[in-house]
Computed example of a mutant assay.
Amino acid sequence: MTRPPAGSARVALIVAGPTCSGKSALALALARQVGGTVINADSMQVYRDLRVLTARPDPQEEASVPHALYGVLPAAESGSVAWWRAQAIAAAQAAWDGGRVPVFCGGTGMYFRALTDGLADIPQPPPAIRARARDMVAQMGPEAVHALLREVDAETAATLRPTDGQRIARAWEVREATGHGLAWWRREAVLPPLGARFIAIRLHPPRDVLRAAIARRFHAMLSHGALDEVARLLAQDLPATLPAMRAHGVPELAAVLRGVMTLEAAAEQAIRLTGQYTKRQATWFAHHALAAADDTFIHEKRFENCESEQQMERWTNKIISFVINRIDAGQGFP
């Protein structure tokens, strides 16, 4: 295919949408067609201990085109938006240097936001301050700490739900460690977005189709060793607060292994909670543009009523044609 005209902005593709919406298959198809590198934009697929439960691309798929940022962190570490942004920008540059097109694929909205809009450069508080903030929330309750936060950082407190203990702890630790609130940092210290011309695809399957896909995939995960994967994770004796320990399916299958839940009940609960999460993902994407910088081009395609492989294949081919045409023409949307 023809490359973008000389002097045009470098192209990067975004494939976004809720869990189990077909993002990975589409990203792989696009990467094969345009000479791309698939770059993970899912906060759980970065953990190497969770290949099965996070539905990471299998080894054959990873070998068919270059992949980046899949399974790169141990479960004992915590990824972050700032960490991912730095790694993703480096991966995109490596792709361009190799004459390839970065294809960002995932469902973590804040990762895409950091990529296309930039990110507040918030210093990481010392571990002792972080621990104190979480202890405060655990002992006093989130509403009480929210009230204290309102006294010292009303601007940030106004953006947080009084029951959101995790975000309240984060706001408190940043205020204590830096003397400035999160709202100040987000306004005054912003890392720039990736310099690229984005072509973005958002997948939006019907809710009933998505629910059925989630159930099928979870049962397939069980047959491919999800329970053994969780057993290996538990053997590391990691804190339950780590992101990998809260991945969909991990708490439920851990309960099975501890003898406090049946496998049937665990599967039912994991499927239900994953469905609730995909609803929140879809809501986020519906209210946030995937790309917002002035030099960004974006086009959105929705998968509506794709209930068969044939329908999905037709949609995939249409999207591939759309992307190739936009790359060749150096355009965004008409």
Rank of each mutant, 00 (worst) to 15 (best):
R280P: 02
I271F: 00
Q281R: 07
A266E: 04
S223F: 01
L253H: 04
A291R: 08
A226T: 09
L263S: 08
R246F: 09
I214G: 10
R217V: 07
S223D: 14
L253D: 01
G225A: 03
W284P: 10
E268W: 07
A226S: 11
R272Q: 12
A265D: 15
T241F: 07
A270F: 04
A286G: 12
T262P: 03
F218K: 01
S223G: 09
A247L: 05
A220T: 13
R272G: 04
A289S: 14
L242M: 05
A267F: 07
A226Y: 07
A286F: 04
L234Y: 02
V256E: 07
P243D: 00
S223I: 00
L253K: 04
P251V: 10
E229C: 02
Q236K: 14
H224S: 13
T241G: 13
A265V: 09
D228F: 06
T278S: 15
E264Y: 00
G259C: 08
A254S: 13
A235Q: 10
E252P: 07
A254E: 02
H288W: 10
T278K: 04
F218A: 06
R217M: 13
R216L: 12
R217S: 13
A291G: 07
A266H: 00
A270V: 07
K279C: 11
A282H: 03
L290W: 12
M261D: 05
I214M: 05
T278V: 10
R246C: 12
L234N: 08
S223A: 15
L227N: 00
A247R: 02
E229K: 00
T283Y: 13
A282Y: 00
A215N: 01
W284S: 11
D237G: 01
M221E: 13
A286H: 06
L234H: 07
V256M: 03
A254R: 06
T283K: 09
Q281H: 04
E229Q: 01
A215H: 11
R216I: 08
G259E: 09
A267D: 10
A265E: 15
R232K: 08
T274P: 01
I271A: 05
A289K: 12
L234A: 11
E229F: 01
L257A: 06
A240P: 02
L290Y: 10
A215S: 12
M245R: 08
P251A: 10
M245P: 02
A270D: 06
